[in-house]
Amino acid sequence: MHLLEKETTAGLANGGKSMPRLRTGHPRARRLLVVAGIALSAVLMLQTAANAHDVTANGPYDCGPFHLTLCSRGGVTRIHTEVTACDLYADGRGAFTLYWLYNGFQGRVRDGNGSASGCGDSIVTGTDNPVWYIQSCIDGGSPAIYCGAKIPA
Score class of each variant (00 low, 15 high):
Thr48Val: 12
Met45Lys: 00
Pro130Lys: 00
Pro60Lys: 03
Val76Gln: 05
Ala144Trp: 06
Pro152Ala: 13
Val124Cys: 02
Ala13Met: 09
Ser142Tyr: 12
Arg110Phe: 08
Asn129Met: 02
Pro130Glu: 01
Leu12Val: 09
Ser117Ile: 03
Gly92Ile: 09
Trp100Gln: 13
Arg21Ser: 14
Arg28Met: 12
Ala149Leu: 05
Ala153Met: 01
Ala13Cys: 01
Asp54Arg: 13
Tyr102Gln: 14
Gly126Ala: 00
Pro27Arg: 11
Ile151Asn: 04
Ala116Gly: 02
Cys63Lys: 06
Glu5Gly: 11
Ala85Leu: 11
Thr48Ala: 12
Gly107Arg: 04
Tyr89Ala: 12
Thr84Asp: 11
Ala90Asp: 10
Gly112Met: 02
Val34Met: 15
Leu22Gly: 05
Ala85Thr: 07
Cys86Gln: 12
Lys150His: 06
Gly141Ile: 03
Leu3His: 14
Thr24Cys: 07
Leu46Val: 13
Gly126Arg: 07
Thr69Ile: 04
Val35Ile: 10
Thr81Cys: 09
Asn129His: 02
Ala149Lys: 11
Leu33His: 06
Leu12Gln: 14
Arg93Ile: 00
Ser122Thr: 07
Gly25Cys: 09
Cys71Gly: 04
Leu33Ser: 06
Ala50Trp: 15
Ala90Arg: 09
Tyr99His: 06
Thr127Cys: 00
Ala149Pro: 03
Leu101Tyr: 08
Lys17Glu: 14
Gly120Ile: 04
Phe96Ile: 07
Ser72Trp: 06
Gly118Asp: 04
Val34His: 11
Pro143Ala: 06
Ser41Glu: 00
Gly140Lys: 10
Asp62Arg: 12
Arg30Ile: 15
Ala13Pro: 07
Ala116Arg: 05
Phe66Thr: 08
Ala36Val: 02
Pro60Met: 03
Ile138Ser: 03
Arg21Tyr: 15
Leu68His: 10
Val76Glu: 01
Asp128Glu: 00
Arg28Leu: 15
Ala29Phe: 15
Leu101His: 09
Asn58Lys: 14
Thr81Gln: 09
Gly112Thr: 11
Leu33Arg: 07
Asp111Thr: 04
Arg108Val: 13
Gly59Lys: 10
Cys71Asn: 06
Ile145Leu: 04
Ala52Cys: 02
Thr24Trp: 08
Gln135Ile: 06
Met45Gln: 06
Arg73Trp: 00
Tyr99Thr: 05
Met19Asp: 08
Gly94His: 14
Ala144Asp: 08
Arg28Ala: 15
His2Glu: 13
Asp62Asn: 10
Leu22His: 07
Gly112Phe: 04
Asp128His: 04
Arg110His: 06
Thr77Gln: 14
Arg108Leu: 15
Thr127Arg: 02
Thr56Val: 15
Ala95Ile: 00
Glu5Lys: 14
Arg78His: 09
Ile138Glu: 05
Gly75Ala: 08
Cys147Ile: 04
Glu82Gly: 00
Ile38Thr: 13
Gln47Gly: 13
Arg23Leu: 12
Thr24Ser: 13
Ser142Gln: 09
Ser142Asn: 13
